[in-house]
């Protein structure tokens, strides 16, 4: 049954997801040939123009990536809400399936979408940044950056990607947790879910900052005051702490969602 639930989740929003991400990849490929490959980073004709055009391009790129990520999050949230708590919920909840199976189906399908989104964005960046001219230009500063990071930029990117993929789980569980919290209220459940999201993310961020502060990573002066510390060491430490915080928070939110899905279901 779990497999079937996931199948229908993927089917329901797969088309638009693939379309939008396909457009993104085509955009990246076109930009690689039209724009990136033609850049002369080593001896630009007009340095100012180069900086301006790069700034403009990366602004557009960032907006595009953010929009995709926002779309993916919204799609996951809406699917969860619509499938389980709107009128369609009357069908979903009368299938011979437990609330926990529903929750897991949604977590897995949500993570698949989020991970696919992350991987496609990463692929887009790779397509844009692997031209010969860029590699040549980077090779001039590679040693310095490797020294700063404590590893090659490739390894760094890979770790970043893995961290992003891991955070997908946290994001997905948090969305569901907030919608579930919204369902505990007698009315205005969507509004309550949004409020729950704002409150939860504020609490998590403030809590994380406080913990980082306690461990001396925020602000980071003290750390860099120590001898021989690289940016990478600093970052990896921050990631480890945030990772642990996220993991703990995710588990807590899962337990709460599990309880709500098992014991507190009240469809309007």
């Amino acid at each position: 049954m779990l497999g079937r639930l996931i199948k229908y989740d993927l089917k329901s929003s797969g088309k638009l997801f693939i379309l939008l991400h396909g457009i993104f990849l085509i955009f990246c490929i076109l930009m690689r040939f039209i724009y990136m490959d033609r850049l002369d980073l080593l001896a630009p004709v007009d340095e100012k123009m180069l900086v301006v055009s790069l700034l403009l391009f990366f602004t557009i790129f960032t907006v595009f990536v953010s929009a995709l990520m926002f779309y993916t999050l919204m799609q996951i949230a809406f699917r969860y809400y619509r499938n389980l708590f709107s009128r369609e919920g009357y069908l979903s909840w009368t299938l011979p399936v437990s609330g926990i199976q529903h929750l897991w189906a949604k977590i897995i399908s949500g993570c698949i979408f989020m991970a696919a989104d992350t991987l496609i964005v990463a692929a887009g960046i790779l397509i844009l940044a692997t031209g010969k001219n860029i590699r040549n230009a980077y090779s001039l500063i590679a040693d310095e950056i490797t020294l700063q990071l404590g590893m090659t930029i490739g390894d760094f990117g890979l770790i970043l990607l893995i961290l992003c993929l891991a955070s997908c789980i946290c994001n997905v569980v948090m969305i569901y947790f907030c919608i579930n919290i919204g369902q505990l209220f007698p009315g205005h459940r969507v509004l309550c879910a949004v409020a729950a999201y704002i409150i939860t993310s504020t609490v998590i961020q403030t809590g994380s900052l406080i913990i980082l502060f306690i461990f001396g990573y925020f602000p980071g002066y003290e750390f860099f005051a120590a001898e021989g510390a690289t940016t990478f060491d600093f970052m990896i430490n921050i990631y480890v702490i945030s990772g642990v915080i996220s993991a703990v928070v995710t588990v807590a939110m899962y337990i709460a969602s599990h309880y709500i899905m098992k014991k507190k279901i009240n469809l309007i």
């Binding site: 329901s12 009128r87 369609e88 009357y90 069908l91 009368t94 299938l95 011979p96 399936v97 199976q101």
Partner: peptide, 19 residues
């Protein structure tokens, strides 16, 4: 009510419930 009872109950709500 649970998965076992939902297997044997066929339910028509008083409003549309399909996508």
């Amino acid at each position: 009510p649970g998965p076992a009872t939902k297997k044997i109950v066929s339910y028509l709500p008083d409003h549309s419930f399909f996508n």
